[in-house]
Write a protein that binds this DNA or RNA. Structure first.
Length: 516
RNA sequence: GCUCCUGUAGCUCAGUUGGUUAGAGCAGUCGACUCAUAAUCGAUUGGUCAAGUGUUCAAGUCACUUCGGGAGCACCA
């Protein structure tokens, strides 16, 4: 099967932050997992670069819009490098290919009779440079005031191109009902159904008085930023559009909950109008808070992905975000929680288990993994893991892996091989408990490989399955399919000589992470 | 204001279509072990399941009411 996975296209009004890193890490994990399953995967991320806000941000930085965008887009790519994101495509909505595609798309929608000129009436605050709805404004006698600036708003009329969204209300509702997985989590699907039930309205897809956008032929207007941004998911594929955006491939959009409406309502309607296949899944993830509070520059409580990566490694951050937070719900970051999670799972549960078993094998069996038949069976774990990933629940998928490791720790403690082997170095039950422990670590390493590749590699190296040099400079797909693939799960490790001096796969964290 | 969701141990949450003494993880306490990255394992403390009324042989599980918490309400990336 062909999977096409996308992050949101990040708006370049600001430098990348943890909120952009979160879905991108999740996508990277999903994409890698699908590679392990032997699927064909395309993974796209990119930047959304048009609109008034960008024009303004550029002006404030004394740059042209494109200069500003070049700079921010570059910063995004740098962050993805630091975080080890293996995207296949990086789309920028300012590039020529995109302009061409949007223009063609616009024409298709127009030819289908879904674009018309209409008047947009708005209440405009010149201080916000934005429109307000009457119900959100404060009343002051007979005047309406902007709630942030407390200044009167002006009535403003603009002739815009509108998209006939209302025409698609029924088809949209049907599509969502016929494809129960289209919008998830289910509580967000309820929201969308509520919106549709309340009735949709046509929306303007053009802007006047704005230069930084894609020109609409035969007019002096440019496209509304969302009308163009969403199309980046297709235009960004370049010459691979038909290969990944077709009736058979599975298109998965991972987005933030704030932009659900655009992806779950506008986007499918636009695609229907232009005659394109619809995506299969739109997943709206939650937001991160810090110490229970919304993050913000003014509060100064920012989680800095670069600082965390520099101090603890990108893999620690990658693991933490997907393991500690239920994907879809809001998650709260605390320094204590971060350290606790990593220590508990990676250092204690997994790392320590591997280490103790390796030491015993070295001490009592010359480092050779004995050939003993085991009752271990990972079938149900495998089903569970895959099932949870299919539901885009990395939290529960990872939980299953660590429950398996918990059980392995229980088992080795009940057998007490250190005691039995001291009496009789060939005690089979004792040796078997060690083989099972090592094998469990190997299996965990396989499932974690798309998320924490270095850690997984080191487990395999410690086990003696590979030399460090075997795993250098491998392409990701090669690594995940041919070295750390699912066929490793049931492959015997009997007879392998483990590393004499095991390398710690994850050192316990002692101090509080860097403050923002 | 309207719509929807939610209120279970100190914290985070499970509790299937209502069915026996309400569960897990973490934290706390006590203990075991000593192979191991002061890790691991066991035991244990702790809840009138927000409150009330009702339906029922039986309600954490359904209905209603009150109180508390959250989300959404369109051009927001």
């Amino acid at each position: 099967m062909v999977f096409y996975i996308t992050t949101p296209l990040f708006y370049v009004n600001d430098l990348p932050h943890i909120g952009s890193a979160y879905p991108t890490i999740a996508c990277d994990f999903f994409a890698g997992h699908m590679l392990q399953r032997g699927e064909e995967v395309a993974f796209l991320t990119g930047t959304d670069e048009h609109g008034q806000k960008i024009e303004k941000a550029a002006k404030e930085a004394s740059k042209t819009p494109i200069e500003h965008c070049d700079y921010i887009a570059d910063e995004f790519q740098k962050l993805w490098e630091i975080l080890g994101i293996n995207y296949d495509y990086f789309v920028r909505t300012s590039n020529q290919e995109h302009y061409k595609f949007v223009t063609e798309f616009f024409k298709k929608v127009e030819a289908n009779g879904d674009i018309y000129k209409g008047k947009y009436n708005g209440l405009y605050c010149s201080h916000c440079e934005d429109f307000w709805l009457e119900k959100d404004l404060k009343e002051d006698g007979d005047k309406l005031l902007c709630p942030t600036h407390k200044k009167p708003v002006e009535e403003y009329q603009q002739e815009n191109y509108f998209f006939a969204l209302t025409k698609y209300q029924d088809r949209l509702e049907k599509y969502i009902n016929d494809n129960p997985d289209f919008i998830s989590p289910d509580y967000r699907k309820n929201e969308v159904m509520g919106w549709i039930k309340d009735g949709l309205r046509d929306f303007p897809i053009s802007r006047a008085n704005l230069d930084w956008g894609i020109p609409i032929e035969g007019s002096d207007q440019v496209t509304y930023v969302w009308f163009d941004a969403l199309l980046g998911y297709i235009s960004g594929l370049g010459t691979d559009k038909e290969k990944y955006w077709n009736d058979k491939s599975k298109v998965v959009h991972i987005i933030g909950k704030d932009i659900l409406r655009f992806h779950a309502v506008y986007w499918p309607a636009m695609l229907m109008s232009a005659g394109y296949p619809l995506p299969h899944r739109v997943f709206g993830h939650g937001f991160l808070t810090k110490d229970g509070m919304k993050m913000g520059k003014t509060l100064g409580n920012i989680i800095d992905p670069v600082a965390l990566s520099e101090k603890y490694g990108a893999e620690a951050l990658r693991f933490y975000l997907l393991r500690d937070i239920v994907f879809g719900r809001d998650g709260d970051y605390t320094d204590e929680g971060f350290i606790e999670r990593l220590n508990s799972d990676l250092a204690n549960n997994l790392g320590n288990l591997l280490n103790r078993a390796l030491k015993l094998i070295n001490k009592y069996n010359d480092g050779i993994i004995p050939d003993l038949s085991s009752k271990q069976n990972f079938d149900s774990l495998h089903q569970q893991f895959i099932g949870e990933i299919d539901k885009l629940n990395p939290y529960f998928a990872l939980e299953a892996v660590f429950k398996m490791l918990d059980a392995t720790n229980v088992e080795i403690n009940s057998v007490e091989p250190w005691r039995a082997l001291k009496i009789e170095a060939s005690n089979e039950a004792a040796l078997l408990s060690l083989v099972d422990a090592l094998n469990a670590c190997k299996v965990a390493a396989v499932y974690l490989a798309p998320l924490t590749p270095q850690l997984s590699k080191q487990i395999f190296i410690n086990l003696g399955i590979y030399q460090a040099s075997d795993l250098e400079k491998l392409e990701r797909q090669d690594l995940l399919q041919n070295y750390l693939g699912f066929d490793q799960i049931n492959k015997s490790i009997a007879g392998i000589k483990v590393l004499e001096e095991p390398v710690g796969i994850f050192q316990r964290l002692e101090k509080a992470p860097v403050a923002a």
